[in-house]
Every structure is written in C-alpha cells, then in structure tokens.
Design a protein around this nucleic acid. Structure first.
Length: 480
RNA sequence: CGGGGUGUGGCGCAGUUGGUAGCGCGCGGCGUUUGGGACGCUGAGGUCGUAGGUUCAAAUCCUAUCACCCCGACCA
C-alpha cells in the first residue's frame, strides 16, 4: 500500500523514483536550469555520509585531497584524441567573461584528467616524485540530454582520484585496489548494496582509458546502475600531456596514470535498491538519523512526563546512536510516523503515557513496514537492543537486495533467453562477440554488457550470439 | 536534435460565447486536538512566462519568443 503522494513501484517505477526524491525531501529540480537540481538538506546529509565513508577509505589507501580548477582551457581537452571525442558533445563552454569574448574559450570540467595531467607534467620530474596519489572532491558538468535527479544531472558532485605511477603494474594495482577497497567495500558494507565487479567491455571503456573497471548494482526494476568506475589510463594521458619522469638509470619514461570516480548518482542507487512504496529506506550505517523518537501525549501534564521520560531514556544514547527527538507539537503522532517513514529513518521509538507507566517503549523498524515491524519492549536494555537492531537491519537490507539480485540474474544460452532475461534483470552469458555484435544487442534488446565479471567460469561454453566456443562470460542488462 | 506537453498565489489546478481572477492543499493567528497522515474560526498571498498585436475591453483571440517537463538517440 503506497503512501499519499507516491506512485507504487509496480504502477510506474520511474514516477515512483521521482516521488521518493521529492517526498523524502532529498532534492528538487532547480526549475530554472535544465537538468540541474537543488540538493536539499536531507539529501545533502546522505551525500555527506557517502563522502565521509569514501574519503576515509581514500585516505586509508594512501591518498591525499587537493583541488584543481573548474575551468579548463578548451585546447587541453583536445590533447587526448579519444577523450575529446568522448566528451565533446556534453561540455559546456565559456566564451565570454569580464565583459568581453575570451581569446581561448574555457570548458567547464566534465572530468579533470586534462587539467590534472597538465599539472602533473610540471610536478613530476624524477622517479622519486612517484607515485602521486591525489583525490579531489568537486562538481562537474556534463550536458546530458536526458536528466533525472541524482542518476543523471547536468551538474553533479563526485570525487575523482588521479594518480601517476612509474610502472604499468603499479597503475593496475592501484586501479583494482580502488575498486575493491574503496568503492566495493563502502557500497556493500555501508550502503548495503550488493555488487558485481569486473572489467568493462571496450565499448563501455572510459574515453582515453586502457581499461575500465566498474561496480554494477541491480535496481528493483531489474536495470543496472554503474555505481563507481576505476580506470587504468595507461600512458595515453602521459603522452598527451607530456608527463614524464627520469628513471634511476637516467632514462626518460612516460608515467602510467589512473583515474576513478563515484558520484551523487550513488544516492539514486541507494533509493532504487532499498526503498519501498512507503518511501525512502536508509541503511543504518549511512543514515544521518538512525533513530527518531516520537512523543505521544494528550495534554500539557502528559507532555511533561513523556518528555521527561524521553530525556531519561535517550541519555545513554549519546555517542552510540544518531537520534532525533521529534518534539514538534503542532503535528499529530500519525503524521510524524508517516513523515519519518517517508524519510527512511531506520528505527522509530514511540514514547507515550502508557509507556511511562509500564516502563516500555514502542519500536518500529523501517525495513519491515506495518504492524509486523512494530513491537513493545522494556526500557531496560533499550540502548543495546537498538544498537543490535540497527545491525540486524543493515544486514537484512543487504541480504534482501542480494537475494533479489541473484534471483533476477539468470544464465542464458540462447539469444531468445537473453532477450527475455534482460526484460527482468541481468543475463549472464558466454560471449565471444566483437564491438559490432555488442552494438547490435544494444540496438535490438536495449541491453549492454555491464561488466565482464572477475569471477569467470572454469569450463567453456558457446557464445550467446555467435555460437563460437569461449570461456568468457559477461553480464548483460539494461542500464541507467 | 526529433515527437508530445505545460507555463495562472508557495504547490496542484479551474477559468464557459473576450467584460478585469477562483478552488484545493500549504502558509500566519486563535482555540480545540494528539498511540498511524486532526478540526473549527480567521487572515495573508497573483502586473495570468515574456514581448508585440487585434479590441472600448485580453488569462482568454493572433504573432513572435523564452523556459521547463515527458517520450526516444548520448552518458558517472
């Protein structure tokens, strides 16, 4: 049963998504800038939680933060052939400033390989300067033709890591390390989103990269969302920007670079993996508010005793739980229940006159809607109970999403099976096709190779399209 | 770029054969309420996207223009 103002997922999935974004107060379309959104405090708090988790892992793996300019001379972007070609259609260009036309236009960064490559060329002289391990938190602009809040916006927030290494092996290790230890670790353990990890096909590789690795998640409509990418750029950008170093034996060599990014799109994935027809569902480890307390009273004297009880009950929560006491007194409890469910708070605690009398409270878990998720428990031991409950919810959200994903990931042997499979989820298939074959699948089935998983089969099979024998398996899906 | 749609109080909409703007929600005040989206009274709030034209008179008719939204091709 859906709430007021929310379409059901079954009825209209795309509209349901937009309703959640709006009703949970995460963001709203700017209304004046095409494809751009205002991220509201509730939504931004989620982003801050994502930033914290990623930033912590980025630093734990030896990186430091820095900041590079928003504007990039147009010519910089053009130095790497594939890179220009890949981004040209979607860059915004500044042609006028200071009241006159610029000598050379600036592009608003769609990503920062160019300006950072230019900078690294000056910073790197010797093998002793390597590796350079830098990350930046920034906004970027890509003029998307079909925007959707969080999933694809004209301007979005992200982090982009840019590293330079002496050897190809080091760059490759870095690329994979970020994928596993930063992105996958955070997304699975904090966001409770199960992932497929692997290599991108050539067609899906980042413009200018040697290899792109990605984590892919399945949404509740069976479509795929790329949740993070890590690129081994080889020496392509080093050549384009003349980033060289002297080896110990005094040779001049090009460096090997990597780049990797995760964006506010993660919030879109979060919504589409966990949320339901009642609103947003936040995993406890990510939730800005983990427990909300709703007081219930009929008059001022009841109000006083209930608030005093809440004061006492929540005192030991300090430092253990992120909680909020909803003491707004012009709203009915029922309204508050609905509102906090809409906003995805994992646990609600209700305290009323009866609870004060019986030394109890009512607790409701967001991941189990309705009466089933509500129970009355003693006040004694409540803190420990809540801490344990949050862990349980975290685990249960992940398990549920994993079961859903596995159930909708099917092995296919024929083209017909592939066509049917991508209607409802992911298709795992043996694949020996080329770029043109892949393009044909996209044309006909609207599905692409999301990832060539690291986990590959022991035995050979026949390619779903060409019928040739191969040991390579890929995952096909329609994607956001 | 193609196809479709919409611009009227904060939001959602109505506005008839042209006659000078109305409803719901929300918002402010007061009172009663409060264990699953409360109610009454009262009040504030709009140069009808913009520019031009027709007319005694335009939200309404005409022309131009701008913007946003939805559907497809490109994408973190």
């Amino acid at each position: 049963m859906a709430k007021e103002g929310i379409h059901t997922r079954a009825d209209n999935y795309a509209q349901w998504y937009l309703d959640i974004v709006e009703q949970a107060d995460l963001a709203e379309p700017s209304g004046v800038v095409r494809g751009a959104m205002v991220i509201k405090p509730t939504g931004y708090a989620v982003w801050e939680a994502i930033q914290r988790g990623l930033d912590q892992r980025i630093k734990a793996t030896g990186h430091v933060n820095a900041y590079f300019p928003l504007f990039i001379p147009q010519s910089f972007l053009q130095k790497e052939a594939e890179h220009v070609e890949g981004f040209a259609p979607e860059v915004a260009v500044v042609t006028h400033a200071g009241g006159k036309e610029l000598e050379e236009p600036y592009v608003v960064r769609p990503t920062s390989e160019a300006i950072i490559g230019h900078t690294y060329a000056r910073w790197i002289q010797s093998w002793r300067d390597l590796p350079i391990l830098i990350n930046q938190w920034a906004n970027v602009v890509r003029w998307e033709l079909r925007p959707r809040p969080f999933l694809r916006t004209t301007e979005f927030l992200w982090q982009e890591g840019h590293t330079a290494h002496a050897t190809e092996a080091e760059a490759e290790t870095e690329t994979l390390r970020i994928l596993h230890e930063v992105y996958a670790d955070f997304v699975e353990n904090v966001m409770a989103i199960p992932l497929y990890r692997g290599l991108k096909s050539r067609r899906e590789t980042f413009a200018g990269a040697l290899r792109t690795y990605a984590i892919e998640a399945m949404m509740q409509d069976g479509r795929a969302l790329q949740a993070g990418t890590s690129h081994n750029l080889g020496q392509n950008f080093a050549r384009a920007f003349e980033i060289t170093y002297q080896t110990p034996s005094n040779e001049r060599e090009y460096v090997w670079t990597t780049s990797w990014g995760a964006s506010t799109r993660l919030i879109g994935g979060l919504i589409m993996v966990h949320s339901d027809d009642d609103g947003l569902v936040l995993p406890p480890r990510l939730a800005p508010i983990q427990v909300v307390v709703v007081p219930i009273f009929k008059n001022d004297s009841e109000r006083a005793t209930v608030m005093a009880a809440i004061e006492r009950i929540t005192a030991p929560w300090q430092g253990k739980l992120a909680f909020k006491i909803d003491d707004r007194d012009h709203l009915s409890p029922g309204f508050k229940f609905n509102e906090w469910e809409l906003k995805g708070v994992p646990v609600r605690v209700e305290v009323g006159p009866k609870d004060v009398q019986k030394d109890s409270v009512a607790i409701a878990r967001r991941d189990v809607p309705g009466r089933e998720g509500k129970s009355f428990v003693p006040q004694a031991g409540l803190t420990e109970r809540l801490v344990a409950l949050l862990d349980e919810i975290q685990q249960s959200l992940f398990d549920r999403a994993l079961a859903y994903r596995n159930q909708r990931t099917v092995d296919v042997r024929t083209y017909e099976e592939l066509a049917a499979a991508v209607e409802q989820g992911f298709a795992r298939a043996y694949w020996d096709g080329n770029d043109a074959d892949e393009a044909r699948i996209q044309e006909e089935l609207k599905a692409t190779i999301r990832v060539i998983p690291f986990d590959q089969p022991e035995t050979a099979g026949t390619c779903v399209l060409t019928g040739r024998e191969t040991t390579k398996q890929v995952l096909f899906a329609r994607s956001y």
